[in-house]
Simulated assay, not measured.
Amino acid sequence: MVAIDFLPADFGYVLLCIVYCLIMNVYLAIQVGKARKKYEVFYPTMYSDKSQMFNCIQRAHQNTLEQLPVVFITMLLVGFVYPKFAAICGAIFVTSRFSYAWGYYTGDPKKRLNGGYAAVGYLGLFVALVYIAIRQLGCFDAYLP
């Protein structure tokens, strides 16, 4: 028996990828919390006028938060049709966010680009979503068996 009957059997991979993403987000949030103490940047201040290092750590987390809604929604929608593909693209994106953050944590903002391979996961999800939308609209029906 499947936990939720209307989902594809392999949808668990998508859910595990979301768990991976939540773990990554908690990790980044903890790093910001530690940096707040270390660099004495207290709530509700978002960025420091004194510490570029704090700003790099904060920005790595903030940038990730800005992207998560789109990635979550796209991964879920693609996952309804292609769950393994969606999970692989999602895992690439999440893993890239670690690389992005660790690059930023060096204090050299250019090293955040170490996580640039997020584009592979992002683009994969985007192209799959467009393909699914076009198929859903029946645009390929004349060409498919």
Rank of each mutant, 00 (worst) to 15 (best):
I73W: 09
L144A: 05
K38W: 08
G115D: 12
Y27G: 10
V120R: 12
A128C: 05
F126M: 14
A118H: 08
M75I: 03
L123N: 06
I18H: 15
L68F: 07
F93I: 01
V127H: 07
V71M: 15
L65C: 05
D10I: 02
N63A: 10
V41A: 13
I18P: 00
K37H: 13
K110V: 05
L7K: 03
L129D: 07
H61M: 10
M46R: 01
A128W: 04
F11C: 14
R97D: 06
Y47R: 05
I18Y: 13
F126W: 08
G138L: 11
G115S: 00
D108K: 03
G12M: 04
G115R: 04
K34Y: 08
A118K: 08
M1T: 14
A87C: 12
Y104D: 00
V94L: 10
C89K: 06
D141C: 11
F11N: 06
C21Q: 02
V127G: 12
P145V: 10
L76C: 03
M1L: 06
Y117M: 15
V71W: 10
G124E: 04
F85M: 00
N55W: 04
K37V: 02
C21M: 12
Q136P: 00
G12H: 11
P83D: 09
L16V: 04
M46V: 15
T74C: 02
W102I: 14
M75V: 07
K110M: 07
R36T: 03
A29D: 11
C139A: 15
L65S: 09
N25K: 12
S96T: 14
I23S: 02
D10M: 11
G121T: 03
Y131P: 10
L129I: 04
P69E: 05
N55R: 00
M24S: 12
Y82L: 04
M53R: 01
M1P: 15
W102D: 08
L65A: 05
K111P: 02
A133C: 10
V71T: 00
A3V: 11
V120N: 02
Y27F: 06
G107W: 04
I23Q: 00
A119N: 11
A142R: 14
I73G: 14
A128T: 05
H61A: 03
F42C: 03
M46A: 00
F93R: 01
D5I: 04
Q52P: 11
V81K: 06
Y143M: 15
V130C: 15
C89F: 10
V130E: 13
A9K: 06
Y43Q: 07
L28C: 09
C17G: 15
V130P: 12
Q31V: 05
Q62C: 03
D141I: 12
A118N: 04
E66L: 06
A9V: 06
Y13A: 08
L28I: 02
L129A: 08
N63C: 02
D141F: 00
L113F: 04
F85C: 05
V94R: 06
V41Y: 03
L144M: 15
A86H: 02
F98W: 15
G90K: 02
K50W: 07
L7Y: 02
R36F: 07
L68V: 12
Y20S: 08
Q31C: 06
A87I: 14
I4N: 01
Q31S: 15
N25W: 04
P109R: 08
I92V: 15
S99C: 12
L77V: 04
